[in-house]
Computed example of a mutant assay.
Amino acid sequence: MRTYGNWRKSSHSAGGDGDDCVEIAPHPTRIAVRDSKDRARGTLTFPAPVFAAFLEAVKMGSRS
């Protein structure tokens, strides 16, 4: 099992303590994603280029 360090939350985290968000941890070839509210529940990982394309699509959707 791979462990990821350097977890960070979105600057758009809602709520008083910012636990209402997802966290990401970059790795050279993959991006790990987990729920801030339940970190022990599990981690999803995506190839870095796929995650980058997802973020671009989200950004484009927010401009509409």
Rank of each mutant, 00 (worst) to 15 (best):
R2Q: 15
T3E: 14
T3M: 07
Y4F: 15
G5K: 08
N6P: 01
N6Q: 10
W7V: 04
W7Y: 12
W7A: 04
R8L: 13
R8Q: 14
K9T: 15
S10I: 10
S10H: 06
S10E: 09
H12D: 10
G15R: 00
G16R: 12
G16V: 10
G18Y: 08
G18R: 10
D19W: 06
I24N: 10
I24C: 03
A25L: 08
A25N: 08
A25Y: 10
H27C: 06
P28C: 09
T29A: 10
A32T: 02
A32L: 00
A32I: 06
V33L: 15
R34T: 02
D35E: 03
D38H: 09
D38W: 02
R39L: 11
A40F: 07
R41T: 14
R41Q: 14
G42L: 00
G42S: 01
L44P: 00
F46D: 05
F46V: 07
F46R: 01
P47L: 09
V50Q: 05
V50K: 00
V50S: 13
A52R: 10
A52G: 06
A53W: 02
A53P: 00
A53G: 01
L55M: 14
L55S: 13
A57T: 13
V58Y: 06
V58S: 05
V58D: 09
K59A: 14
K59P: 02
G61V: 02
R63L: 03
S64F: 07
